[in-house]
Every structure is written in C-alpha cells, then in structure tokens.
Computed example of a mutant assay.
Amino acid sequence: MHHFDFQCKKDFERAKRVFLPIASAADLGTVPADLIGSFNLVFYNSAEDAVLEALGVE
C-alpha cells in the first residue's frame, strides 16, 4: 500500500473485506482514515492463509 490513485480508492470503497499481508500493517498509517474505515481488514501470514480465510475454512 504505497500510493492510492482515484481508481484504486473507488475499488477499495466497494470492497467489504481487504486481505493484507501482516507485513503491510506498518503501512496502514498512509491510508486515509475515511477509506480504512469503510472495509474490514483481514491480515494473513501466507497466501495459503489468505485463501483459507477468504473461503471461510479453518
């Protein structure tokens, strides 16, 4: 999450959940507060974890 242009912001505003690698948590300070409050953040450690979380598999 480095730079949000207008299209990216529109895409995120439509999202209900956004999956982010846990390593990106430190970059959340660069995201506007109104944008970050409009979706649920789901952090993951690996791509496999992200897929399982997205599918609702534990």
Rank of each mutant, 00 (worst) to 15 (best):
Y44K: 02
Q7E: 14
F12T: 04
I36E: 00
N45G: 08
A25C: 02
S24R: 04
L28P: 01
R17H: 12
A25S: 11
H3M: 13
V51M: 10
F43T: 01
S38L: 01
A33W: 11
E48W: 04
S24H: 07
R17W: 02
C8L: 15
A15M: 09
F12M: 13
A50I: 03
A23M: 12
S24Q: 04
F6T: 15
F4G: 06
L52S: 09
F6W: 13
S46H: 07
D34K: 05
D34L: 07
V31P: 00
I22A: 04
P21I: 02
V42N: 05
A54L: 12
E13I: 13
F12V: 12
R17I: 07
F19S: 00
D49K: 01
L55P: 02
V57F: 05
K16N: 11
A15Y: 10
G56H: 08
A50F: 02
F6R: 15
V57R: 07
L52T: 03
A25R: 06
A47H: 12
V57S: 05
K9D: 07
E53N: 08
P21V: 01
V31C: 03
S46V: 03
T30Y: 06
K10R: 15
S46T: 12
F4L: 13
D27I: 00
A47G: 10
L52I: 09
F19N: 06
R14E: 11
K10E: 12
F43N: 00
F12R: 07
F39L: 02
D5N: 15
E48M: 08
A54Y: 02
E53I: 07
N40D: 12
V31E: 01
F4D: 03
N40M: 07
H3Y: 14
L41D: 00
K9Q: 14
V57C: 10
Q7D: 13
F39S: 00
A33G: 04
M1F: 09
E48D: 09
V57M: 08
P21K: 07
T30F: 09
R17D: 04
T30L: 11
A33L: 11
S46W: 02
A23N: 06
N45S: 06
G56M: 06
L28C: 04
D5C: 15
R14T: 13
H2C: 12
G29R: 01
F19G: 00
K9S: 09
D34I: 02
K9V: 15
D49C: 04
R14V: 08
G37K: 09
D5T: 14
N40H: 10
L20N: 00
D49H: 04
G37F: 00
